[in-house]
Design a protein around this nucleic acid. Sequence first.
DNA 1: TTTTTTTACGAAAACGTTTGCGCGAAGAAC
DNA 2: GTTCTTCGCGCAAACGTTTTCGTAAAAAAA
Lengths: 344, 344
Amino acid sequence: MKFEAITIKDIAKALHLSVSTVSKALRGSHEISEETKKHVLAYANEHNYKPNPIAQSLKRGLSKSIGVIVCNIDNNFFSAVINGIESVARQKDYNVIITQSQESYEREIANSEHLSSRSVDGLIISLSAETKRVDHLIKLHDKGLPMVFFDRITDEIATHKVIADNFKGAYEGTRHLVQQGFRRIAHITSSSSLSITLERLEGYKKALADAGLTFEEKYIKLCPHGGMIKEETQQALTELLQMKDRPDAIFTASDRLSTTTLSLLRKMQIEVPQQIALVGFTNSISADIFHPSLTAVVQPALEMGQLATDLLIQLIEAKRPVTEFQKRVLDTELQIRDSSLRAK
Amino acid sequence: MKFEAITIKDIAKALHLSVSTVSKALRGSHEISEETKKHVLAYANEHNYKPNPIAQSLKRGLSKSIGVIVCNIDNNFFSAVINGIESVARQKDYNVIITQSQESYEREIANSEHLSSRSVDGLIISLSAETKRVDHLIKLHDKGLPMVFFDRITDEIATHKVIADNFKGAYEGTRHLVQQGFRRIAHITSSSSLSITLERLEGYKKALADAGLTFEEKYIKLCPHGGMIKEETQQALTELLQMKDRPDAIFTASDRLSTTTLSLLRKMQIEVPQQIALVGFTNSISADIFHPSLTAVVQPALEMGQLATDLLIQLIEAKRPVTEFQKRVLDTELQIRDSSLRAK
DNA sequence: TTTTTTTACGAAAACGTTTGCGCGAAGAAC
DNA sequence: GTTCTTCGCGCAAACGTTTTCGTAAAAAAA
């Protein structure tokens, strides 16, 4: 079951030329006469010649493919990012190999090693919720594998990074709740080891501070698996709801946490926003048809993917070692809907 | 910026052996003495030797990668399928290269050619909504490229296929609406060239017939781009709503169509299910938090992806040409929620 | 001791490219 | 008429493997 294609050799034989002549003719080398080039090109087109990318990769030492590690593709934020990655990669003739860590540290290590041994030319990564140490990535980076981080990034590796303005997004989301008159605002977020968790927490705190509200540790609930385990979110939510001074609003820090929280509240028959208001980070395309429609901090996911890919390809194709790295921070957008509106 | 790794040559040099000896030792050949094998293995492990997959591919003529063409990754059904594909592929040590047709015939052609020239060992495809002819795929299939179709399949290529039981799914969805007392049930569906469109339409018709309701052509609205173009859905919906004997229920045939329809109805301030009921094919993980929660025909997306991948790898690794092909039909599940319930 | 077999390894070709170099022929410069 | 360029092309090595075949030396059989 092999798929046979025409090779340079076949062309050479057919045209009574040498392999090298054909190769050069195809690449338009000045060493070859116009006439010969024309012949070769014509024959190649006619027989639909496509260079074997594997042979080219072997020769050039570049595979023209990039690896992607995200926690989960089945998620509006990440699928949109991948959409962006794919569009830029395709345009620049790179292949994209996608892998999922499922928020597992083990799988992230396995995937990164598998991808590098599969000789991808570079890596685009968003860290898993379980990841606390990045030695596995440092090792690869030190060996010269270009990488770009997005969303969940690390300070321990000097390279390009692309994130949304998590601080500002969280600040605006929280401030909006404050402005609506909510006072006991809880925050359900991911693993404390993630960069986004910290940044969003800071934005949340600052919004409280600016409004003269005191920050209360008890209103912060961590879900170490970022919502992948429903029970974790359930537990967090239950604890919040059983408090004496139970929160009157919740600010959730990720896509999965937001939808899960809303779903759980609905199951518990708790009215949103009447009994408790909700603002969430989410890129769900259906936030407007949720019950209630969900006020969302939306990240520019597509752009993040595109930008990350652009930066990675820059790194890959750089002639000389790159030493200046960018940390690009893209704006978020607050989409206000019913879930956060104070009942009149 | 190249990523350097240890090769067989390096091992050979270090151990004063020939390249061929090292290669055989690594593969455990009986031609090599136990002692030498031990040395080589030890050295290889110590220096973390990984065979260069590109060189192996070139040699073997197999790339250990499979290509995927779906219309859109940013869609709960397809991302779940890809989830399934990825899990099986990874387990069998295949790479997955994902491409999107965005429901465009042109892009489907471009992607299929790009993937085959990228020498994937096989293809997993769900046809785009625009696709009416599959010559581009026939060409590749005839050349010996193994492929498996899922969801949107074609009869014109003899190979394995994986689909959900679209007829039964549509039948049950429609019958449920009938049982709830709805009589004028419209059907918004995709391009008429898609297999799923026909199958679902048949299920819909049969359910009407079995209930003694007459099928009316005017209640069928096609969206040739499968919901990718919002205006198309808008148009279809508007036409339905302006009828004299306007439908009292809608059955939507795809993920995107379902969410878009619900969103539009909401925007038009039409109460679901009071003014019009809704049942949709969808794999949205959030169907339960929609307003109203959406009655859904759910496809076993993950299983479909896994099964398709299993079948494809069987084809790829088959010793002799395969002539018996399977068409696997997986069960759908009807999840009844508020959007289809007759008000008391 | 001679012949045969076995063992353990190396040489080389192959996969399909790319590329530095060499070389003969034609033309230009002297 | 000799030397120097330039042109157009082919040779061969290289990328990292795998695999066929050949072959020394050691072991076994005669």
